[in-house]
Design a protein around this nucleic acid. Sequence first.
RNA 1: GCUUUCGUAGCUCAGUGGUAGAGCACUUCAUUGGUAAUGAAGAGGUCGUGGGUUCGAUCCCCACCGAAAGCUCCA
Length: 667
Amino acid sequence: MLKVKLPDGSIKEYSAPVRAIDVAADIGPGLAKAALAAQIDETIVGADTLLPADGELSLRFLTKKDPEALDVMRHSCAHVMARAVMRLFDGVKLAFGPTTENGFYYDFQTEQPITEDDFPAIEKEMAKIIKLNEPFERLDRSREEALTICRDMGQPLKVEHIEDGLAEHDTLSFYRQGEFIDLCRGPHVPAAGAIGACKLLSVAGAYWRGDASRQQLQRLYGTAFFDKKALAAHLKLVEEAKRRDHRVLGKRLELFTIDPLVGAGLILWLPKGAVIRGLLEDYIRTELRRRKYDAVYTPAIGRVELYEISGHYPYYSDSQFAPIVMDENEKYLLKPMNCPHHIMIYKSKPRSYRDLPVRLAEFGTVYRYEQSGELSGMTRVRGFTQDDAHIFCTEEQVAEEFRSCLEMTQSILKSLALDNYRVRLGFRDPQSDKYVGDEDVWNRAEAALEQVCREIDLPNLEIERGEAAFYGPKADFVVADCIGREWQLGTVQLDYNLPSKERFALEYTGADNKSHQPVMIHRAPLGSMERFIAMLIEHFEGAFPLWLAPEQIRVLTVSEKSEEYGRQIETALTEAGLRVTGDYRPEKLGAKIRDGGMEKIPYLCIVGPRDAEQGTVSLRDRLDGDLGAMSLDEALERLREEIASRRVRQIAETTVDLAERGGGHEY
RNA sequence: GCUUUCGUAGCUCAGUGGUAGAGCACUUCAUUGGUAAUGAAGAGGUCGUGGGUUCGAUCCCCACCGAAAGCUCCA
């Protein structure tokens, strides 16, 4: 006797063996038709899964409306894609084909490379397969049979996977659709017709089993939705992201540039970008003063020996610029981080417990030789500036200092209306022995950190075991921008390694007149200026709030007749402390307004003969349009208030529904 | 670093084995206009760099530089 509990709480009983789909049919033919998969207790299974003969289980059916069903369908679509590819190309060896958050991919080893030019043919073949609406048939086989099947099909990667990846499994499952059979744990939708709309997106290389020393496969990316509308919405989101691309906007709005002659991954901040960065730095400096940090400056290079002590050299030499060699005994490294320099400042005099915490802050520019394939705009670069600081404190002070760092980061994010973020607490993996420091100290530190995070009520706190640095636990801020993309930015990390005797042997004299080792905290609320501003550009779509806008207001003359008055107004605005320009070209007003709009200038100040006569200006707001004529004082009042409060009035909104996302699974 | 794709005017992009084109931007001239593109003319390119094939290469081949997507790495 089997008792099946349904989501509405009702219970059905069966004495003869049934499949999930039979239960659905029992409830109603509509459900049986709509059911794409089922969930037994916590496990998602195919709709045709045979239920156990006895016992009790809860069962729910997944239809198009359930995000889990989208994931199942995309996985089925990956099979359809693989089937299409095998029809069109010779000697295709299958690897893995999982789903991702936004779609799916399948890795192949092919005799000939697949290129984007092949997409239309593959998509056409997929459409044919989907139209046939053949079922996905599950076959369970013993290990031996499974190996024979994969060998007979000429699928060496699958054979390898069975032999070691699935060494523990006694039985293995295949899914068959027509001539296509794939080793796969499933589940799948009942038949290919459930795939409403799909599209191939890109092709890229991917290492077999993620191992760079193994052969590289062709990874074909695609996505699928239950209907064309949802696919269109997703593609629109991709378009939207493209439109916000900081590399494009950064060029168009003249914020930064990268020149191969200077070097890949090295940012040249153009005047307008430099304004934004300068304002953010000023803002951070104010916050640092309030929080009793001491500003320091340190050089861009340091002796190699310094980094030998810190342990960063030669350990990270692959991702460092090669040393500058003056002679055998004199070698310098372009600094890959600021901490060793700050440590030497700490060590520049004896420290008493009365001096602690010592908080040393610097916008420190560091250089790392990232591998060429990693470079990307301002988000992944070879030279970047951290809003860095290092806090040296006693173990008793750690919790309070940590709290203060988190609060500072929160306050800065809040001032930019970046309200959607989560915090990841990286703790050590108790199984691993890669960590330095006493287990006791770790336990105390992790407990203190977690408690602080709970006390200040950090949003969406997650504890991730095994994500700590080897030298200490950390908290990372992951900020979501206005179209839902996540950026890892600020970080706070405890460090028990660098202060230790094996490294820099930091000390302070305690109340007991004995020497003690301080704890070090690395923290950077924004992370790197480059990366943070890249995120801001995309988040605001280049339309920065008034206080950050490189050009806050532009005087536009209605005709050249008003140039003199316009220049007076421009001077007055400049003297009032605004970043202002004037457009006195002999263009029509509409054209000047359009240009101002394209350059995302928050306010346009339009002056014509009427204004000159009455001593007024006509403000035009980037968001609300024409505000009408007003006195200069009135205009200034409005602008000053908006600047002083650092108001974020608008974040360009997304028009796309973010809800429709799958979870992504390994298969 | 690896795989695939790409590199033509400041920008966005056409194009061809016979030494190059559009739109926007730019310059000049005319127009003097009240809230998202006035009209005309002009200037601007060693077709990423270096080799090779060819009578001839921007186009085909190779190497290098740079970029995009992804993989691997990330103190």
